Structure formats: structure tokens, C-alpha cells
Simulated assay, not measured.
Amino acid sequence: MTDDAPRRYKVAEAARLSGVSASTLRLWEIQGLVIPGRSQTGHRQYSAEDVARLQRIAWLRAERGLNPAAIREALEAEEADLQMSEDSAETGIGRKLRSLRHAAGKTLDQVAGDVGVAASSLSTLERTSKGVGFKTLHELAHYYGTTVSRLSGQDEDNVPAMVRSGEWNTWPETTPGVTVQLLAEGRRAMDCHRFVLAPGAASEGDYRHEGEEFMHVLSGRLEIVLDGDQFFELGPGDSLYFESRRYHSWRNRHDGETVLLWINTPPTF
């Protein structure tokens, strides 16, 4: 299987993945919500993008109670937002990851299998620079022999030594609810960041790399887990220092934003 020959799903498979019946898929086709392709023998064939759309339609119907017209309107609005994201991603992390994959001679399915991520998620990341957790982003950077900081454009030359309050440059927001602001720019011996985490924002898994890390919570509450069995809950004014080679994962445990300073040395994340 290659990028030019993506997997296709039969009606029964697409229905199972979407959590609805095959007859419902046929109804949605009549309503114009999803138009699948056809095989040479005339059988319906759903792409991975079609299945993702079906899952979204099922959610809009079940969780928000929308009728077909309202679902169509919601999908059109989401597609417009996605197009804007794709346009902005032309100079972002997604384009860089796609270039690295092409340079390595790899297909989406090959990279997805090697890293352990869904090919559809990887495709979305390359197109929009969004949609994956910090764990996946770190593993992709490691896979290509680079770092998230470099992918984010942090190591550019000719940057100011002083960064004034509120004038921080920001990493592309690849992970929902996670904003990373640069407190020091350029190629430094330390990664100095200001993290702003929305309620529930998390690393979505544990990861590790070389170096040492220091974090200091300014507001909110952060839970961090080291090596899967050491739990720390940090509140305003609390700090934590640990070796980056230890597996670490984190989550905002506050019902509002959590803001913290996070320093890595050397810049291996």
C-alpha cells in the first residue's frame, strides 16, 4: 500500500467503524452528506477521509442532535476552518514533516507503522500542522533525527537576546489546548518556554529524551508522572527538577488555565 493507493473500505467496514448501520450510510449518501467512490464493479468504496467524516456525522447526530441540514452546515464550516489551517501550514511543522518523510523515501503508512500512530492522524498533521499530542510529536521528531524545537523554527539565527513581557513568539499549536511561548529564542544551550495549558490539556502519553528539565508553576495546577509510578501535583510556586531520560507525562489538573515555566537543557525536545 502506498500514498497513491490508499486503503478503501466496503460499506460493512465503514458502518462498523462509524458505529452505525449500512442502511444509515446509504441514507446519508442520499442526503448528500458523504458520497463514496465506486469500484469498477460499482460497489461503494469509502476512503479513510470518508470514514472520518462518517464518524463526525455520527457524533453530530448523536451528541448534538443535529438534523441532516444542520450537519451539512456544520461540516461546511469545519471544512472552511480546515482550509485556513492548511493554508497556514504551508510554512509550518506539517510541511517540514512532509518534506522529511519524502526525503527519507517513506510513505505515510510506513512512518505511521514505525512510530505507532494512525496514518490518518499523520496525514492530518502534515496537512494542517495540528492534531497530535506532545508524545507523538516528540516521537516523530526523534524518528527524523531532529527536535520539536527545530521543527517549530526556534533555532533560527539573528534573534534578539531580550524578549519583553507579552511579546513572546509562539510554537505552532499542534496539540489542542497547549500553547508554548518562547522566553529565549535562537540556538541556545537551554530551551526556555512558557507553557499555557487549557483545562484538561495533556501530553497524551509519556516520552523521554536526553538532558535535564526544570519546571515552575506560575498559576493553576499540573500533574506530572515520572517513570509511570511517581506522581507529583504542582501548584502555584512549586518547582520540579528531573532527568529528561526518565519517562514523563503531564496533565493540567486545574479547572482553568495552568501556566508554567519549563526549561530543558540541552535542547533535545
Score class of each variant (00 low, 15 high):
residue 100 L to H: 09
residue 16 R to A: 12
residue 71 I to M: 05
residue 169 N to V: 12
residue 114 D to G: 09
residue 133 G to H: 01
residue 33 L to K: 08
residue 155 D to C: 00
residue 265 T to L: 04
residue 84 M to L: 11
residue 216 H to I: 02
residue 122 L to M: 07
residue 66 L to I: 13
residue 99 S to M: 10
residue 176 P to R: 05
residue 48 A to M: 08
residue 120 S to G: 10
residue 137 L to N: 00
residue 198 A to E: 07
residue 128 T to E: 07
residue 155 D to L: 00
residue 182 L to C: 14
residue 256 G to W: 02
residue 204 E to W: 10
residue 17 L to G: 12
residue 74 A to C: 13
residue 242 F to G: 12
residue 160 P to Y: 02
residue 120 S to F: 05
residue 50 D to M: 03
residue 179 T to D: 09
residue 156 E to R: 15
residue 255 D to C: 00
residue 234 L to Y: 04
residue 9 Y to Q: 01
residue 129 S to I: 04
residue 121 S to G: 01
residue 76 E to C: 11
residue 23 S to R: 15
residue 24 T to C: 00
residue 125 L to G: 10
residue 40 Q to A: 15
residue 79 E to L: 12
residue 85 S to E: 07
residue 189 A to W: 07
residue 95 R to S: 14
residue 105 G to E: 08
residue 190 M to F: 12
residue 198 A to Q: 04
residue 30 I to C: 07
residue 152 S to R: 01
residue 14 A to G: 05
residue 228 G to D: 07
residue 233 E to F: 08
residue 69 A to K: 13
residue 27 L to P: 12
residue 113 G to S: 14
residue 3 D to T: 09
residue 204 E to I: 13
residue 197 L to Q: 06
residue 82 L to P: 03
residue 202 A to Q: 02
residue 247 Y to V: 11
residue 226 L to R: 07
residue 145 G to P: 09
residue 26 R to G: 00
residue 120 S to I: 10
residue 18 S to L: 03
residue 203 S to F: 06
residue 145 G to D: 12
residue 37 G to E: 15
residue 154 Q to P: 02
residue 23 S to E: 14
residue 111 V to H: 02
residue 216 H to W: 13
residue 130 K to H: 06
residue 64 R to S: 10
residue 36 P to F: 05
residue 52 A to C: 02
residue 114 D to Q: 14
residue 55 Q to S: 12
residue 144 Y to E: 07
residue 159 V to Q: 10
residue 59 W to C: 00
residue 40 Q to H: 15
residue 90 E to R: 09
residue 120 S to N: 08
residue 244 S to P: 11
residue 212 E to I: 13
residue 187 R to K: 11
residue 147 T to L: 04
residue 215 M to S: 13
residue 260 L to N: 02
residue 183 L to S: 05
residue 147 T to A: 07
residue 36 P to T: 13
residue 18 S to E: 06
residue 259 V to E: 13
residue 238 D to E: 14
residue 175 T to H: 03
residue 205 G to R: 05
residue 102 H to Y: 11
residue 266 P to V: 09
residue 129 S to K: 04
residue 180 V to M: 13
residue 16 R to D: 10
residue 25 L to F: 03
residue 179 T to G: 08
residue 239 S to T: 10
residue 93 I to Y: 07
residue 164 R to M: 13
residue 219 S to Q: 12
residue 245 R to V: 09
residue 231 F to G: 01
residue 242 F to E: 08
residue 256 G to L: 03
residue 184 A to T: 11
residue 168 W to I: 06
residue 116 G to Y: 11
residue 231 F to P: 02
residue 91 T to S: 12
residue 194 R to C: 00
residue 81 D to R: 15
